[in-house]
C-alpha cells in the first residue's frame, strides 16, 4: 500500500499543480476578456465617424457583434470588426457596409506587416479602392474582382481582401438572420 502510494504521489502532485494553474488562468481570463471586449468595441466606435461622416446614432448587437448605424432615425449601414492573419501577424480591420451588398469603406486599425513593404496596405491608395464596391467584387482584378494589389506585398494585400470579403459575407448572413 505504501509502495503504491509512493508511485502515485508524484502523478497526483502534478495533477494538483495543473488544477491550480487552470483555476488561476480561467480567473485571469475572465477578468481580462471583459477589458479586451470593451476596448475592441471602443476601437470600432472611434472609427465609425470616419467611415460614415453623417452618423448620429448607433446600436450594438452583442450576439452577432455588429453595429447598426443611424442618421436622423434612418438606417445608414452596418459596421463590424474583421480580423485575419496577415504575412506577419493579425490584421484588424473595421468594415463599414452601406447595405447588405455594398462596402462603404474600411479602416485598418492594427497590423504588423513588414515596414516599408507589407505595411503599405494602410496607405490610402489601397484602402480607398474598397469604397462603393459590391462585396463579391472585393477581390484582385486577375481573380475577377476590382482591386489592384500592392506590388511586392501580394500576401498582405490578399490577407486584407480575403478577410474583408469573408467576414462581410458571414456578417450579412447573420444580419439578415436577425432581421
Amino acid at each position: 500500500m505504501a509502495n503504491m502510494l509512493r508511485k502515485i504521489h508524484p502523478i497526483m502532485f502534478v495533477t494538483l499543480v495543473v488544477l491550480i494553474s487552470v483555476t488561476l488562468l480561467v480567473f485571469t481570463e475572465t477578468l481580462t476578456s471583459a477589458v479586451l471586449e470593451e476596448r475592441r468595441q471602443q476601437q470600432i466606435v472611434d472609427e465609425l465617424g470616419n467611415i460614415f461622416p453623417e452618423i448620429d446614432n448607433f446600436v450594438y448587437n452583442e450576439e452577432i457583434e455588429v453595429f447598426t448605424l443611424y442618421a436622423g432615425g434612418v438606417t445608414i449601414g452596418y459596421a463590424f470588426l474583421a480580423i485575419g492573419a496577415g504575412y506577419v501577424g493579425d490584421i484588424a480591420i473595421v468594415v463599414g457596409l452601406e447595405d447588405s451588398e455594398t462596402v462603404k469603406g474600411i479602416i485598418i486599425i492594427s497590423q504588423q506587416e513588414t515596414p516599408g513593404i507589407g505595411d503599405r496596405i494602410t496607405g490610402g491608395g489601397f484602402i480607398s479602392q474598397f469604397a462603393g464596391l459590391s462585396i463579391n467584387a472585393v477581390n484582385f482584378k486577375q481573380d475577377g474582382g476590382q482591386i489592384d494589389g500592392i506590388t511586392m506585398a501580394t500576401i498582405s494585400s490578399k490577407a486584407v481582401i480575403d478577410t474583408v470579403r469573408d467576414t462581410a459575407i458571414e456578417k450579412v448572413k447573420q444580419i439578415e438572420g436577425v432581421e
Partner: peptide, 26 residues
C-alpha cells in the same frame, strides 16, 4: 507548468491593457 501559468497570465494581461505592445511582441 508553473512557468507556463505565469507566462499565460502575462500574455492575457498584456493583451487586455497594452494591446499595441502585445501585437508587436507577437
Amino acid at each position: 507548468v508553473i512557468i507556463a501559468t505565469f507566462v499565460t497570465i502575462v500574455t492575457l494581461v498584456f493583451q487586455a491593457y497594452v494591446p499595441n505592445l502585445y501585437q508587436s511582441l507577437g
